[in-house]
């Protein structure tokens, strides 16, 4: 069949199916199950209205259940089986993980990422938001800083591969070293610090996000509180750290936790830059290494990541809800 016709048919079937579902299910509810007539008319109308929201929510609940809840349970179940998936080994995979040196390195590195990236992105975003606020060219600066957000992680990594290239004619780092008469190095091979060189890429991407959200929050602070602080004799630093920052603390926490959750998902940067070599492995890239080779281990890693993300996620949602109120 012609792909265009196939596409159109899909659209018609999909949209028609939705309309049909809502129309027919409501019809069934109002005419057959709880008809708005007879002696129980008012009771029937009330019951129909109590049921109706669930009719509308059912497709979403069903899809989320199928594609989110089931995989969580399914993954956990799979992580209890061996590599081939035919032998139940209990928590054997987890045991193997926690005794493996590679996993410990990945876990430690991931901890570093979680500590450094959200903190650095949020701090830089906050400072930039404040500094660009009153500048005539502040919006241009903000656009430039926001731009990396639009680049995929892989694309960003490729850009930074040039920055880190071990050739003074290509790599920025080595060009600077060359200028000071220092020898050429490969930043990706510097033990321990290579992790931070990788983090810089994500910080570069995420600072724009933090800046945009925090800039809006800073503008929402009532101007009078700042003026009152000026009259109270506070200097610009005191106004920023003692009047402004505390007032947007809720937003800062939301930004911080959102970036934390993201950090626990990013594997592209490590995968593109080092492939997890030279002790730069983090949990998501570690998981990718085992995927399709040993699904038992890979699902166990996925579950560990989920357990780690969960508290941050809950805190994030609680804070975001409080912000909305």
């Amino acid at each position: 069949m012609n792909p265009i016709i196939a596409g159109l048919v899909t659209i018609v079937v999909g949209v028609g199916g939705c309309v049909g579902y809502f129309y027919l299910s409501n019809l069934l509810l109002d005419k057959v199950i709880f008809p708005a007539r007879g002696e129980n008319i008012s009771r029937n109308i009330n019951r129909a209205n109590a049921v109706r929201p669930w009719l509308f929510m059912f497709p979403a609940i069903f899809a989320l259940g199928l594609y989110l809840v089931y995989p969580v349970i399914g993954s956990f179940w799979r992580s209890l089986y061996n590599r081939a998936g035919n032998e139940f080994i209990g928590f054997g995979n987890y045991q193997a993980l926690f005794t493996s040196g590679d996993f410990q390195v990945a876990f430690f590195n991931n901890l570093l990422w979680v500590l450094v990236v959200p903190a650095a992105s949020t701090f830089l975003g906050l400072v930039i938001a404040q500094l660009t606020d009153r500048l005539s060219w502040g919006n241009i600066a903000k656009s430039l800083i926001f731009m990396p957000m639009a680049i995929s992680f892989v694309g960003a990594s490729l850009i930074w591969k040039f920055v880190y290239a071990n050739d003074p004619d290509i790599g920025l780092i080595n060009a600077i070293r060359d200028f000071f008469g220092l020898g050429v190095i490969d930043p990706m091979l510097v033990p321990f610090w290579n992790n931070f060189f990788l983090m810089v890429i994500l910080i570069w991407i995420q600072t724009g996000f933090a800046m945009v959200i925090l800039s809006a929050a800073l503008r929402g602070i009532p101007e009078e509180t700042v003026e009152a602080a000026i009259i109270d004799g506070a200097n610009p630093f005191q106004i920023f750290f003692r009047i402004k920052v505390p007032q947007i603390m809720g937003t800062i926490v939301v930004v911080w936790t959102t970036i934390t959750i993201l950090v626990l998902k990013v594997f592209d940067i490590v995968y593109t830059m080092t492939g997890g070599e030279f002790d730069t492995e983090i949990l998501p890239s570690f998981m990718m290494d085992y995927m399709f080779r040993d699904d038992g281990i890979a699902t166990a890693v996925a579950f560990v990541i989920m357990i780690v993300v969960l508290p941050v996620m809950i805190w994030n949602i609680v804070q975001a809800r409080r912000e909305l109120r």
């Binding site: 009078e224 509180t225 003026e227 009152a228 000026i230 007032q247």
Partner: peptide, 21 residues
């Protein structure tokens, strides 16, 4: 002279209390 050194105090229409204190 900056506001703080003029020896003035101001009460704002919107109170302008520091909400976190």
């Amino acid at each position: 002279v900056p506001p703080a050194q003029r020896g003035i105090a101001m009460v704002f229409q919107s109170y302008a209390l520091y909400p976190h204190m």
